[in-house]
Every structure is written in structure tokens, then in C-alpha cells.
Simulated assay, not measured.
Amino acid sequence: MIPLLVIVGAVVGAPARYLTDRLVQSRHDTGFPWGTFTVNVVGSFVLGFVTGATASPAITALVGTGFCGALTTYSTFGYETVQLAAGRSVLFATFNALGSVVAGLGAAGLGLALGRLF
């Protein structure tokens, strides 16, 4: 049952990632990857919340592993950071690397704290 829940979560998370990325990126004409930044921070918050709110293996598999695993993307984050640096956008590359880690950890911590309230 758990593997099926992971699959169901991923079926929702993957399109949500793509659509959110495209929507956010279409509203910014800078060279910064705001779409990837957004899905990673939101996914970190959701994972923190689920972790704090439940010990249920089923919910953790569905939302934490499936949905958040498909929503967030470390590989795209890494690729975009390298591309920014290679394109001489060192300031954007640095902000993407540091800002993503700090914002992601902060969002996960906030989600965890809020989740424990439930």
C-alpha cells in the first residue's frame, strides 16, 4: 500500500511542480530561476508541516515522499545554479545557492513548528 501512496503523491506533485514553475517564471523576466526556488521552498514547508503534524506512515508516504519528492527538485536547482555561474551571473548564482538553502531550511522549520501545533 505504501508504494502506491508514493506513486499517487508523485502523480500530483510532478505536474504541480511543472505548472507552478511555469506560472511563477512567466511573471518574472529576470534571469533568476524563481520557479524552481518557489517549488523548493514550498515543498520544504509542506514536508516540515507533514513531519510535525503526523507520524502516520501513510500520510508521510503520500505527501512527504510522493508529493514533495516530485514537487521539489535538487537537480534542477543545481543545474540552474551552474548555468547562472557559467553565464557570468555570479550574483544570481550565489543568491540561488545560498538563498535556496536558507529559505528551504527556514520554511521546513516553520512548517515543522506549525505542524506540531496540530
Rank of each mutant, 00 (worst) to 15 (best):
Q83F: 06
Y74A: 14
G43I: 01
L5A: 13
L23M: 15
E80L: 03
T94Y: 04
F77L: 10
A55S: 15
G43M: 07
C68R: 11
P57A: 13
W34C: 09
Q25G: 05
R17V: 05
D21Y: 14
G106R: 02
F37G: 09
L84W: 04
A53V: 12
A108N: 08
N40M: 05
G9Y: 03
T60K: 14
G31S: 13
R22W: 14
S100N: 06
V39S: 00
A10C: 12
V24T: 11
R27V: 03
I7H: 07
S26I: 04
L5H: 08
S75D: 10
T72F: 01
T60Y: 13
V50D: 00
V63F: 07
F45T: 05
T60F: 12
A108R: 07
A55N: 14
F77H: 10
G64Q: 08
T94A: 15
G35H: 08
V12R: 09
T94I: 14
V46Y: 06
S26Q: 11
A10M: 09
V8Q: 01
A93I: 04
G104D: 04
A86F: 03
G111Q: 10
V6E: 00
G35E: 00
G66R: 03
D29I: 08
V82D: 04
L19K: 07
A58Y: 13
S56T: 06
G87D: 02
P33I: 03
S75R: 07
G52T: 13
S44A: 10
G115T: 03
T81I: 01
V12T: 12
G31Y: 01
T30E: 04
L117I: 12
L4P: 01
V63R: 04
V41L: 06
L47K: 08
R88W: 06
I59C: 03
M1V: 12
V8A: 12
G115I: 01
I2D: 06
S56V: 06
L71I: 08
F95L: 15
N96E: 09
Y74K: 10
P33H: 04
Y74R: 10
